[in-house]
């Protein structure tokens, strides 16, 4: 199952500059695990003690997983998972 994970600029140093990574997985948890398998440096940028860092939001096709099924949110072929951290500057 092909899932696209969109990588925000602050995490791209851990993905070799890639803005999108193709992964597989039936849930958000599994998809992120596959991302971490491919790019281990992303693990601590995204997770802290097994929880997604509180300033990073995860959207599945532009829907926040916190009102879907959190990390257990089911994914279907072709969906886009976006990692969106808060933007600080200004």
């Amino acid at each position: 199952m092909a899932i696209t994970i969109q990588i925000p600029p602050p995490l791209r140093e851990q993905t070799g500059g890639r803005a999108e990574v193709e992964v597989s997985g039936a849930t958000v948890q599994a998809a992120l695990a596959d991302l971490i398998r491919q790019y281990p440096g992303t693990a601590t940028k995204i997770f802290d003690n097994g929880q997604i860092r509180p300033y990073i939001n995860v959207f599945v096709n532009d829907e926040d997983i916190r009102y879907l099924d959190e990390l257990n949110t089911q994914l279907t072929d072709g969906v886009v998972v976006a990692l969106i951290p808060a933007v600080a500057g200004g």
């Binding site: 860092r53 509180p54 300033y55 939001n57 951290p85 808060a86 600080a88 500057g89 200004g90």
Partner: peptide, 15 residues
């Protein structure tokens, strides 16, 4: 509601 906590120092870029 949207961003539950501030990024810790150094965790996101500044200008």
């Amino acid at each position: 509601c949207v961003f539950e906590a501030a990024p810790a120092p150094g965790e996101t870029g500044t200008c």
